[in-house]
């Protein structure tokens, strides 16, 4: 591996990092702009999954070791699985967040 190759890798990892951060920014913009709680969850889960993926990829390329790359891939995989699961729980509770500050208030309003 010549120095040019390493420089290319560095630039690639920086570009991936920047793209990942852009996705995080887009997710946060969506969080602010979208009108209701479930739509905000769309923005958070999906954009942040991709953001995390790109940042992880950037880190894996930056370190350049297969062992570290495997670990980073695992982190990404578990993060995606748990965000898919928690998003289901949050989507279930989303009307609560839309209604008012606390779960019990929502239940009182909906008469359950």
């Amino acid at each position: 591996m010549g120095p040019e190759f390493l420089a290319v890798l560095q630039i690639l990892s920086l570009a991936l990092l920047a793209a990942g951060v852009l996705f995080y920014v887009a997710g946060s913009v969506g969080l602010l702009r979208f009108p209701d709680a479930p739509s905000r969850l769309h923005a958070l889960t999906k954009a942040d999954n991709v953001g995390l993926g790109l940042v992880s990829l950037a880190a894996a390329i930056y370190w350049g070791e297969p062992a570290i790359a495997a670990k980073i891939a695992l982190v990404w995989l578990f993060a995606i699985i748990s965000s898919g699961m928690t998003a289901q729980l949050l989507a279930r509770a989303a009307p609560v967040a839309d209604g008012s500050g606390s779960p019990a208030e929502y239940e009182r309003e909906s008469g359950t």
Binding site: F78, S82, R92, A93
Partner: peptide, 19 residues
């Protein structure tokens, strides 16, 4: 108390707790 949420938490545990 919400059965659907409980099912999700349960499946999550059964699949991932050993990991």
């Amino acid at each position: 108390t919400d059965p659907t949420s409980r099912i999700v938490a349960e499946a999550f545990t059964r699949l991932l707790a050993p990991a």
